[in-house]
């Protein structure tokens, strides 16, 4: 049978729509933003084409670098928490009995079925002063209070003060962890799932316990997946916009919000474009590091 790739017409018909789509709706806007990043802002907020590096220089000013730095460590903390929570989860799903595996995987991706905005609002309902978490704490407090009254120790607990859980940076990190967790679990799960079980068994057989097997065999072999997961979460958190807007406080501005502000209320598209490209360059550097690491472990078949 003829291979469709050999038929130039068929190949063109199949390739052109997708290529055109990417060109028109992805590459072209990106090029426009790139060109804008060298432009100048007019007095009424117009964008004049020019060639100036002023926007980049402004982006590297201390106040903006501060926001960028805050974004980076927020993303780093989010990634770390996601890994601590997500790696055991991925292990659990990958090594679960076959009949539960699909159900567990479904639970991991279930949040994707609801709109991100709605899910983030749900977190507001959980975290706010009169939210579910504070209600729960209040209930526990009440019960403990009753318990202490019973043993003739009234007022030990004091009156319940609801915790300020919302509209601060912790809330942003909680929200980011929640959003990004599946992106960490899925690639790690995928590599663990493909791992030959007999490699772990061989390690046990040769006298290593479960922890050593994890450290010397499972994690090194799952490393490409772990790296992919970490990068996905980091990049995703770095450029976040919605979560700080809804859950964050006055000090929670991240680079995504700054960019939105420049394109929106500030009407400074050239500066917004420069910031966007700064973010993109950071992403490129991360991807480049990943490629280098991948090349080093090349030839190792997992």
């Amino acid at each position: 049978m003829e291979n469709w790739r050999d038929n130039k017409l068929v190949a063109a018909i199949l390739i052109v729509p997708a290529s055109a789509w990417i060109l028109i709706f992805f590459t072209l806007p990106l090029v426009i933003v790139w060109v804008f990043s060298f432009g100048e802002r007019g007095p009424q907020g117009q964008t004049f084409l020019a060639f100036t590096l002023d926007n980049y220089a402004r982006a590297l000013e201390l106040i903006h670098l501060g926001i960028l730095w805050k974004s980076i460590w927020t993303a780093a903390i989010t990634t770390l928490i996601c890994f601590i929570l997500g790696f055991p989860l991925a292990l659990g799903v990958a090594f679960a009995p076959a009949r539960y595996k699909n159900l567990l995987l479904l639970l991991v991706i279930l949040p994707f079925w609801t709109n991100l905005l709605i899910r983030t609002y749900a977190w507001i309902a959980v975290l706010r002063t009169r939210g579910f978490l504070n209600f729960g704490l209040e209930w526990v407090h009440g019960k403990l209070d009753a318990l202490f009254s019973l043993v003739k120790l009234p007022d030990v607990m004091g009156t319940f003060q609801p915790l300020a859980l919302l509209y601060n940076h912790s809330a942003v990190i909680i929200g980011l962890v929640y959003v990004a967790l599946p992106f960490l679990v899925l690639p790690i799960y995928a590599t663990l799932e493909k791992l030959d079980r007999s490699l772990m068994e061989a390690s046990l057989d040769l006298g290593a316990g479960q922890w050593r097997t994890m450290a010397f065999v499972t994690i090194p072999l799952a490393f490409p997946g772990i790296l992919s997961g970490l990068m996905l979460v980091f990049i995703l958190s770095l450029g976040t916009y919605l979560t700080p807007v809804l859950l964050g406080g006055t000090d929670s501005m991240m680079i995504g919000n700054l960019i939105a502000q420049e394109f929106g209320p500030a009407r400074d598209w050239p500066f917004g474009s420069a910031l966007s490209f700064l973010l993109l360059y950071i992403t490129f550097i991360i991807l480049w590091i990943r490629a280098v690491v991948a090349r080093r472990s090349k030839g190792v078949s997992y």
């Binding site: 490699l199 061989a202 057989d205 006298g207």
Partner: peptide, 20 residues
């Protein structure tokens, strides 16, 4: 007795040689 504490060793069908 766990596999790592048994006085036996195994050669696996897939060899299970650690690729890394």
């Amino acid at each position: 007795v766990d596999p790592n504490h048994r006085p036996v060793n195994m050669v696996f069908q897939s060899y299970a040689v650690f690729p890394h």
